[in-house]
Design a protein around this nucleic acid. Structure first.
Lengths: 205, 205
DNA sequence: AGCGTTCGTGTATGAATGACACCAAGCCCT
DNA sequence: AGGGCTTGGTGTCATTCATACACGAACGCT
């Protein structure tokens, strides 16, 4: 967590995103803005190392995780940094450490350069991947409404979408299962709950 | 090049592809099938290391190179392996070392497992990227015919394409410049030569 | 009972994609 | 010189896909 502290030659860094009104990422508080990052240990896989970074920084576990890119480390830091991004529904995250908070990725410029680059590239990957892979549900609970799903797309894509066209597109490209339950929330018609068939646990895909 | 030889904790490995009738990749000869791979040196960038792997194994330089994925190394090898894939036109490659040859990627199963995985994932990435990025020209000379370009798509996609639809698609999505030259080759009508506007040198993009 | 709010559905139009056939230009051979 | 062979180069039509758009349904609240 400090540039001058000696560390192993390889580290994993994780940009964890969640949605709470807006898209946000997990940021370590401190003079130099950083995201969770720890050196790779003996016998540890890269993915395990990335998960440990989240655990040690924030006590967070069980999130969707995908490798993003590997960067040349900076002088005084690790030799290389393997960057991951992670997605999780906000209400399933239990932050068990202090010293972390959420930040709008459009304000990533306050991070140290290397971590800013990771957050920016993760945003690009995320926006791109929404278009061709069913990952948006990683921000939602196991069962979700189509309205919630549409919100994820609108927030990440920064544009409103037509409700009917959106539903047609999702139904065509995702393998959704309509449950018999609905979510009632507020003084209006309840929304049907769906789940993804074969929704795998949030492991690397 | 030998599992038991000590090496640094980080290595770069490169799957170099070219097209010569079929899609082929550069393979090191020897009992255990391998692709070029060298440990990262002090002060060297990952990309430079990947280029050095190609240089030391085959005397090849100046190819298009893109990072693919970073793997956990296997016991006895480097701690992590940063995999790259490279593309180059076959006739611009000068192989200046012995002990290397070309192999059909569908026969990658004879490689050591880690390198087989790299070749397979590189093929997937390549096929996917053809659909949305103008990289196919990396297999061709600076100036190329649309027929040559179509061949690249057909070989990698393993299916024949309609000539007129292909040309319409490419003209719509690539920024092509029609030169005033043509390539005469064989007893038939010469083909117009095109080049890509802003065709950058084959560096990482 | 009426109001406010979100949920949920179909159609009509324009855009993009896929299928399809012929003449042109060159070389070779007779 | 003419005919044959081979690859280069072009347009239209049918289908599919994407976009724009409006209204009744179900609930809670007052």
């Amino acid at each position: 967590m400090n540039d001058t502290k000696p560390s192993g030659p390889i580290a994993a860094a994780v940009a964890l995103f969640t949605i709470r009104e807006r898209l946000e990422f997990l940021r370590l508080e401190g003079e130099h803005g950083r995201i969770p990052s720890v050196p790779l240990e003996e016998g540890e896989t890269l993915e395990a190392c990335a998960r440990r970074a989240l655990w040690e920084a924030a006590g967070i576990e069980d999130v969707f995780l995908e490798q993003l890119y590997t960067f040349d480390g900076r002088l005084g830091g690790p030799r290389v940094v393997v960057a991951y991004y992670a997605l999780a529904p906000h209400d399933r995250l239990r932050i068990r450490r202090s010293g972390v908070g959420w930040m709008d990725p459009t304000r990533a410029s306050t991070l140290v350069e290397e971590h800013r680059t990771i957050v920016e590239r993760a945003c690009e990957r995320l926006a791109g991947k929404l278009e061709y892979a069913p990952i948006a549900y990683q921000f939602l609970a196991d069962r979700f409404t189509l309205g919630e799903l549409q919100s994820v797309y609108e927030i990440i894509g920064r544009q409103t979408l037509d409700k009917r066209n959106f539903r047609r597109r999702i139904r065509a490209s995702w393998d959704l299962v309509e449950t018999h339950d609905a979510r009632r929330e507020g003084p209006h018609r309840p929304a049907r709950l769906y789940r993804l068939r074969d929704a795998r646990p949030p492991l690397e895909g």
